[in-house]
Design a protein around this nucleic acid. Structure first.
Lengths: 228, 228
DNA sequence: CGATTGCTTGACCCCCATCAATCCTCGTGG
DNA sequence: CCACGAGGATTGATGGGGGTCAAGCAATCG
């Protein structure tokens, strides 16, 4: 089993605040796991009893709305940690996580993390900072959802994806979301998202080749998302 | 100056986790303040440099969207703490807070809180829990904003206000929001909110007497908010 | 190579944003 | 005490955004 002390991924998240001794203990109690594309990492209502550290791959984190449609709230990628919130307030997860492509994750059981939170102020402070930042981002999303048109939200989402994920060799975004996924991020019907995507393509803001998306005109997209 | 050790309000928020000695120090460095209805407690972009503990009154916390409308994201009331997020990630506030009625608040400077966060694991754990819970609530708001109609959101907001605030003697909700405020909570135009309110009144779900709002039929409102 | 799933486009219609006009309410000054 | 002005509340009219249903097309898979 690979050792946390030597894991590069750790450097990107709060686990970097752990001491060497703590990391060795984590190595001893963690489990690794492969999650195939489309598989459920955890579901709404499930007790996770620990946190996941994503070594590779991407998953979509969503919540079912009363009307029966999934709203995607987060995209989690390599280096991110997920599950810490349910762990902290000791509740079942309010969210569902599904792998967007094949993932490799490590699972660290609750007790170990709670112990570290108690004893390592620097670790808990880092978690605090991460959560404060997530809250700030959530504020932005709420405002966008409440005030922006679907077109603006699509433009903003494309920019966000462009910033968050790497490019393939040909310049397309290295994340394979279905049209439905995209619609579920911006909170609209799949057909609406499709229509707007092809409108953007017609205006040369983006290019579409099957599932691949190329961002051509960041500036225009930014103006669109801000409502010009 | 009143003493934090004897302040009842503290029992409702994370400050209850502080030790007696810490509370005495807080008493020594805190300042009290009266904020009149309509006055700004803090503005977007401002460095707060501490936290506010609300002894009395209510304030609306909002964020300006690109299109120039304020979106109200939180309503903060007696017993709540506000400002901890900007303090934790050491940034200017991304939100604006305006008093909805006359308020009485205590201000505790940053250094004191940071010191307590470092030294009192139970305090920082309590803050963590509060933030984890806020994130969960934010998820719900995002889903509602993205997926629900304006009518559903108004119903949900009325229920939320009903649950969060006390009643007056005559049974109306003890919070005086303008129609514009209500519209800015649910993220719609003022006229739309007004129209829906009078529709609800016609259907006997609520009653309106000037600014006062009476909730008549919780069950019907709940069904409405869930989309029946 | 069917068959299932996802993508795309068209048609239709309702919700809601916007503009405009009026009414109401309340605080201020004459 | 009243007049008046300003801001909020209300109602009407209108047009466009976007949700929904339906049908045709492409692609992926057993």
């Amino acid at each position: 089993m690979s050792k946390c002390e030597q894991c590069i991924v750790r450097e990107f998240n709060s686990l970097k605040a752990l001491t060497k001794e703590e990391l060795i203990r984590v190595t001893g109690c963690k489990t690794s796991k492969i999650v195939k594309k489309g598989e459920v990492l955890f579901d709404e209502g499930e007790y996770i009893n620990g946190i996941f550290c994503v070594k590779d791959g991407v998953c979509k984190v969503s919540k079912m709305s009363d009307n029966g449609r999934d709203q995607i709230i987060h995209l989690i990628k390599k280096g991110d940690i997920i599950g810490e919130r349910s762990l902290i307030n000791n509740e079942a997860s309010n969210l569902k996580a599904i792998a967007v492509n094949d993932m490799e994750v490590c699972f660290i059981p609750k007790e170990e993390i709670l112990r570290d939170l108690e004893n390592n102020a620097s670790f808990s402070m880092d978690i605090l900072k991460k959560m404060a930042n997530s809250l700030k981002e959530a504020d932005d999303v709420i405002v966008d959802m409440a005030q922006k048109t679907v077109k603006q939200r699509l433009a903003a989402t494309l920019l966000l994806l462009d910033a968050k994920f790497d490019k393939n060799e040909n310049g397309s975004m290295n994340i394979s979301l279905s049209r439905e996924d995209i619609a579920n991020i911006i909170g609209t019907a799949t057909e609406s998202a499709i229509r707007l995507l092809s409108e953007f393509k017609k205006k040369k803001l983006i290019d579409l080749k099957g599932k691949e998306i190329f961002i051509n005109d960041i500036k225009a997209l930014r103006e669109l998302s801000e409502g010009f």
